[in-house]
C-alpha cells in the first residue's frame, strides 16, 4: 500500500522544527511504523536527502530504544505496544501518518525524532541500584523469595525504560517509571535493605526533573511493558514509609 508520512524534522537541540511530507509506496500492512521509516529513509538517501533521524535497536519490544509519537499517541495508536511493534495494518491504503518525537519537557529533542531521555537514567543513578560489590553476595538460595513475590517484582521490573509514560502524561511525570523501579527493588530481600535511602534519593530527583503526578493514568495506557498503575501509588507509599521510619 501507499502511505503519506508527515514527519517532524529538527536540525538540532533548540533549532526550529517543522513537518515534512513524504509518500512511501510498496508498504505491507504487517510492517511496523519503524519499518515504514526505514523505507522512507532509504528513499531519502537514494535521492540525496538526509534521512529522518530516529532511534531503535532490538525491534522486538525489549530494549526501550524506540519511541515516536504517531498521530498524537506516544508509541502509536495501539495501547501498550512499543513503536517497533506498532503495525500498519490499522491504516487504510492512502492514509496519512503524523510522526513526531516523544514530547516531554524533560526530553529535549536531539535531532528529528530522537530525544534525550537521560533524565530517566538520572533517577536510576540517584538511587535505583543495590550496594553489593562483586563477589560479596550471599548464596541466592539462602535468601528465599516466595514465588508470588518474585513474580510481582518481575511485573515491575519489566519496565523497558522507553519514556513513553512521561510523554503520555499531560504533566510530564515519570512516576510510573520511578515507581516501577522502587517496587521492583523493595520486593527483593537484599535490595529492600536500602529501601528508605533509595526512595528519598529517587524522589528528590524525580521532583526536580519531571512534572507532578495527578493520577491521569495515561502513562499506564501507553506503557509497552504493562506496568500497573500501582507503581504510581508506590511512589507516595514508599515515601510515606520512609518518612515514618525516619521518625521512629
Amino acid at each position: 500500500m501507499k502511505l503519506t508520512v508527515q514527519v517532524w524534522r529538527q536540525a538540532g537541540p533548540g533549532a526550529p522544527g517543522r513537518f515534512e511530507r513524504h509518500v512511501v509506496d510498496g508498504i505491507e500492512p504487517h510492517l511496523s511504523v519503524l519499518e515504514l521509516l526505514d523505507a522512507l529513509n532509504e528513499q531519502l538517501i537514494d535521492s540525496g536527502a538526509e534521512p529522518v533521524a530516529f532511534e531503535s535497536d532490538c525491534r522486538e519490544g525489549i530494549c526501550g530504544a524506540c519511541g515516536v509519537t504517531v498521530d498524537g499517541e506516544a508509541h502509536g495508536r495501539e495501547d501498550n505496544v512499543p513503536s517497533c511493534h506498532q503495525r500498519l495494518s490499522g491504516y487504510a491504503d492512502g492514509s496519512i501518518l503524523r510522526i513526531e518525537p516523544l514530547r516531554a519537557g524533560a526530553f529535549p529533542v536531539v535531532r528529528d525524532l530522537i530525544v534525550d531521555r537521560g533524565a530517566l537514567d538520572d533517577l536510576i543513578r540517584a538511587g535505583g541500584h543495590v550496594a553489593v560489590d562483586a563477589g560479596t553476595a550471599p548464596d541466592a538460595d539462602a535468601l528465599p523469595v516466595g514465588e508470588e513475590r518474585a513474580e510481582l517484582a518481575l511485573d515491575f521490573a519489566a519496565c523497558i525504560g522507553c519514556g513513553a509514560c512521561v510523554a503520555a502524561c499531560p504533566n510530564g511525570a515519570a512516576h510510573l517509571f520511578a515507581g516501577s523501579k522502587l517496587m521492583h527493588l523493595s520486593l527483593l530481600p537484599l535490595p529492600s535493605l536500602e529501601r528508605q535511602r533509595r526512595v528519598v534519593a529517587v524522589v528528590d530527583e524525580l521532583e526536580e526533573l519531571f512534572g507532578p503526578c495527578s493520577n491521569y493514568g495515561e502513562c499506564a495506557r501507553a506503557c509497552p511493558a504493562g506496568i500497573p498503575l500501582t507503581a504510581i501509588a508506590a511512589v507516595n507509599h514508599e515515601r510515606l514509609l520512609a518518612g515514618l521510619q525516619r521518625r521512629l
Binding site: 541500584h129 543495590v130 553489593v132 562483586a134 563477589g135 553476595a137 550471599p138 548464596d139 541466592a140 538460595d141 535468601l143 528465599p144 523469595v145 516466595g146 514465588e147 513475590r149 518474585a150 513474580e151 517484582a153 518481575l154 521490573a157 521492583h184 527493588l185 520486593l187 527483593l188 537484599l190 535490595p191
Partner: peptide, 22 residues
C-alpha cells in the same frame, strides 16, 4: 556459581519455586 548469587543480589528477580528457592 557466584554469578547467580551476584546478579540476584543486585536486583535480578530470578524465578523461584513455591518454597522460595531458585
Amino acid at each position: 556459581v557466584r554469578v547467580i548469587d551476584h546478579m540476584n543480589a543486585i536486583g535480578a528477580p530470578f524465578a523461584r519455586e513455591y518454597g522460595g528457592t531458585l
